[in-house]
Amino acid sequence: MTAFFQSLGLPYEWAWTVATVVAIVVVSLLVMFSVAMVIYVDRKVLGAIMLRRGPNVVGPFGLLQSFADGLKVFLQETIIPSAANKGIFLLAPIITFTVALAAWAVIPFWDGGVIADINVGLLYILAISSMGVYGVVMSGWASNSKYPFFSAMRASAQMISYEVSIGFVLVCVVLFAGTFNLSGIVNAQQGFGLGLINAYAVHPLLFPMWVVFFISALAETARAPFDLTEAESELVAGYQTEYSSMSFALFWLGEYANILLMCSLNTLLFWGGWLPPLDIPVLYAVPGIVWFLVKTFIFFFMFSWIWATVPRYRYDQLMRLGWKVFLPMSLLFVAATSGYLMAIGHFA
């Protein structure tokens, strides 16, 4: 796209700036549109599993429900509690939302379809997701109310705990791929399984790591069965209790953008990203972005399915799972993976 703006007579750096800004706007709008649609899908799947209809009034099959909800919260009044710390109270949802969108900068949608193709893409994702905890902590503290504060404590402990094991899982993938660049990781998966399957998850050393990553992704995004931050029977609505209208909607959108991000990371790191499932020339006729979206959607469906199926964890069990099961297990697999790769001469 830089070349297009250069052909309009702009010098290189301004052409690059304009092209990047256009790409950011397009990706942000598409992510927001997808978030609106997956909220609808989430409610439909949940309804189907609970033998209800789900949203079916606004638009055909209820497709416009999320947009109607968006308009509704936009027209509502933002209520700020009088004892709240006003600046931080309003800053918290903005941080959550911005951080959730910023991570999409390094996600490749197809071969070369990425805003910032940087060497440290995976580390950037880790850095951005570790920023996400501030939105929650700041909202919990600034609300000046006990339930949001409890929820903020829970959320930050939970997110930090599971980030540790996610980090080790990513090390295993990086050892196989030999790069932190997400496009490089996807390309390294071409024909990985017996020269036929385009996925890392088929390897016996990486499949358990994918399971750990998937469960940690549920915990990282505070989805059921790990939604202890907004356990409604204990904490009213968690850190969002005091929020209303757009400030609440920003949390809501940021949360779903994060869930979509985790689904796409599952796709990119373990299931071949934009590559077709099998390394057969005929399948490459389908555009890469279609494969990417289909795989991401399958993971989102699994997220909804799990939400509808399993009960909530107890908090001590959540911590036990993170620190006593996943952390030793992923550490063991880092050692096993590097030993195996040295033995077969992968780095030679």
Partner: peptide, 24 residues
């Protein structure tokens, strides 16, 4: 860029969260 990302992951993501906790 590697040092930059580590700065964010380690200091912003872990150390400063603990600071914030203690102060809060």
């Amino acid at each position: 860029e590697f040092i930059a990302m580590l700065l964010v992951i380690v200091y912003v993501g872990a150390v400063a969260v603990l600071f914030l906790f203690v102060v809060m």
